[in-house]
Design a protein around this nucleic acid. Structure first.
Length: 219
DNA sequence: AACTCGGGGCA
DNA sequence: TGCCCAGAGTT
């Protein structure tokens, strides 16, 4: 497929996704970049429903890293109980808050290197923050995005870096944060790993696994 | 690339 | 019960 055809193809897919998911905002609750950071850290191995339950009360008291410090590790752990892996996450959030206050004047940095130096913040979380809170072009590739991208033939890569690189070539990154949420919603609601609802999928004619009747990658 | 970490919701 | 969830860190 030529590059122009590929762009056309991607634009058609993005148009259908926009039609399916008109609202282009995150399902995660947050008002400050720091709250987004905490919400994304909590979301590992935890359903967004559970994350929202925790953050809706936590964020009444916590809006910046200094609030976490004054809360203390014991109360913090108590408040995020219910998230998966909350023992290590409470320590990571505490340490990250301490680093932000001491080295970054309490402000969440706006570049990937510094973000990833914070405990609990990996490449995916860093890219979500850059793209969503700061509107900086950054593609956050998680399991849903990688699965949907592979099924639609937007990438041939398997690991996240390859997929991120492939997507950068075909997706308009200035609109990424909205596209990101749509790909995720599609992956969670329709294009599920084990039981995809292909009959309800607006994109099925673009899916090589559907049209070629191949076995779906189940990631 | 494989492995560990592990609370809670849901069938 | 068994499976899964908007991952990161270490080896």
């Amino acid at each position: 497929m030529r590059v122009n055809d590929k762009e056309l193809y991607v634009n058609e897919i993005l148009g259908l996704l926009e039609q399916e998911y008109p609202q282009a905002r995150t399902t995660l609750l947050y008002k400050t970049p720091f709250q987004l950071l905490v919400a994304v850290v909590l979301s590992a191995q935890t359903t967004d429903k559970q994350v929202n339950k925790i953050t809706s009360s936590l964020f009444e008291e916590v809006s910046g890293p200094d609030d976490v410090l004054s809360l203390g590790i014991t109360l913090l752990k108590e408040k995020i109980k219910g998230a998966g892996l909350y023992h290590q996450k409470s320590q990571q959030i505490m340490e990250t808050s301490r680093l932000l206050c001491e080295k970054y004047d309490g402000v969440v940095p706006q570049n990937r290197k510094e973000l990833m130096s914070l405990p609990g913040v990996g490449r995916k979380t860093a890219n979500v923050i850059l793209g969503t809170a700061f509107d900086i072009p950054a593609l956050a590739v998680d399991t849903h995005v990688s699965r949907v991208s592979r099924r639609l033939g937007l990438t041939a890569g398997k690991n996240v870096l390859e997929i991120e690189k492939d997507l950068c070539r075909v997706v308009p990154t200035q609109k990424w944060s909205s596209i990101h949420h749509r790909l995720i919603n599609h992956g969670r609601q329709i294009c599920q790993a084990r039981k995809p609802f292909c009959e309800h999928c607006l994109l099925k004619l673009y899916c090589k696994y559907y049209t070629e009747n191949k076995e779906l990658p189940k990631i």
